[in-house]
Design a protein around this nucleic acid. Sequence first.
DNA 1: TATAATAACTTACATAAAGTAAGTAACTAA
DNA 2: TTAGTTACTTACTTTATGTAAGTTATTATA
Lengths: 106, 106
Amino acid sequence: MDKSICPRFEKAITILSQRWTGLIIYQLLSGPQRFGTIESAIGVSGRVLSERLKDLENEGIVKREVFPETPVRIEYSLTEKGVSFEPLMKEIEKWSQHWLEPEEIQ
Amino acid sequence: MDKSICPRFEKAITILSQRWTGLIIYQLLSGPQRFGTIESAIGVSGRVLSERLKDLENEGIVKREVFPETPVRIEYSLTEKGVSFEPLMKEIEKWSQHWLEPEEIQ
DNA sequence: TATAATAACTTACATAAAGTAAGTAACTAA
DNA sequence: TTAGTTACTTACTTTATGTAAGTTATTATA
């Protein structure tokens, strides 16, 4: 190995390269959401979603808030650091609209 | 499932969420490179690199060129579609420099 | 009082993806 | 004839993810 890649860049792309992470952040950009909503919106399994949300919380990207109602309501939302992914997501959107044809997907 | 996410966006983020894909594209942005160079630059295993390069060729993102020297030289480079990832990579770089501290990385 | 419902997980197990290291092909140099 | 070089491929192991059932906590319903 001979890695000359900036470690900060590498860390960032490692976060985004984790399966589901990008979609979770993208989904939360539309506002705070519950576990089950994210799960069905992006089609991730509960097992992995649970794992990812913990990781993202540890990274300071996602915030978890408990509302002691019945049944309990838990909302996930983006921190400032999480919201800062917006320009990047816009770039992905822009790229996809320019370079991907609807018919050639899948 | 209830997916209301734009399929083009989803496809784009699926490409980027594949482990190593982003780093391979980033690495090739600095110019055409050989298999072994990419392998050691980003630290991916040959087995997976081989797989990813084929995928990226099929997506029209990477181009493979054979030079019949001895030993044979094969160069991988980005197509126009591949180069178009540059602004996106710049955004990742920008984000990482703003939001990641060097000391907190691994 | 017992049962059911709901949300957010967690656990156990199965399948898929990625890592490791040895092997192959094609060619030249020693 | 043997060794070296590059770009892979193959067989096998380890890790990640998917699936589906189970758990916890709380209230509503029969």
